[in-house]
Amino acid sequence: MSIAEKILQRINRPDLVRILSEELTPSELNSLLLEVFDRQTDRISPAELLQHYQKNRFVKPADLNVTALQELETRLLRIFETFQFRAVELSPVAPLGSCSVVATADQKKILSALRGTEVLADATNALALHCSDLKKTGQWQPVLPTDPLRFSTIQRHVRTPKVAIPGHTQHFKIAALVSSGRDTGHFQFEKESLAEHIAVMTAVLRDTLRVDALRFKLIQREGTDGGRLPEVVKDHILQLRKDVVMETETSPSRENSYYKGLQYKVMATIRGQEYEIGDGGFVDWTQQLLQNKKERFLITGLGVEMLFRLLS
């Protein structure tokens, strides 16, 4: 029996969740919940508020040097913009279901909020919505059919699962890069966009932050390409650049249906220890959002806060 079922049984309202989620419109539910929270906060005293603050694992500030972190962020954003990934300052909230509707993400791992929103848990999902909106409304018109949309951001993310690793926190900063384009055949978008993301990661980690070593791991994921994508992309990138260290993993040890065709990992060695500092790959979110199978979307996430802590 789930926690919710136990509560419903205790208050003797077994239909309550079904009524709230199925019989009410989102707007009605929002009004109802606003009233509930209003009444609840009316009962909270300032002393209790402080107690809540002390107990709640989501609300404490990050324990780091803010100005130094912001300096790092500014350096990274400058590099992203020079590589034509336009920087975006996202809203701290996204539409409810931003991650779980299009990706294999559990809504329970996301801080759902009122007014049809959730606290941002993955900036790449918010950027997928931004790209799709620009395309759908015609605000973005490519000059050539192969022109991609490129965006970048650095955003604090909140995720609800309790962290088990020392030093990890419930909220953390991630830098995100996305490229949104169309399939023009021969994996053209996949080859070019991944080469661009890897060029940015190389400029950031190897050339600017000067990590001890940098390598990229391309992992084969289920997709419509018959498993060829990692090798095709790897051959293309290594033909362009001899200075990139890259390997492919065709039989990964763990299943992952989040990425389609290809996932890639950014492995950086810092002070003799190798860390998985970035992760990315191709996803079908814009295909789902725009209802168009030709849409292609590449995402990259870089653990900026983790990087900052490792380099400090």
């Binding site: 350096r75 400058r78 590099i79 913009e81 020079t82 400029a203 050339d207 600017t208 932050l209 000067r210």
Partner: peptide, 15 residues
């Protein structure tokens, strides 16, 4: 076009 310059001694990046 913009470009980056990195001071290889102190890591300063300029666009």
């Amino acid at each position: 076009q913009s470009w980056l310059t990195i001071n290889q001694k102190n890591g300063t990046v300029k666009t």
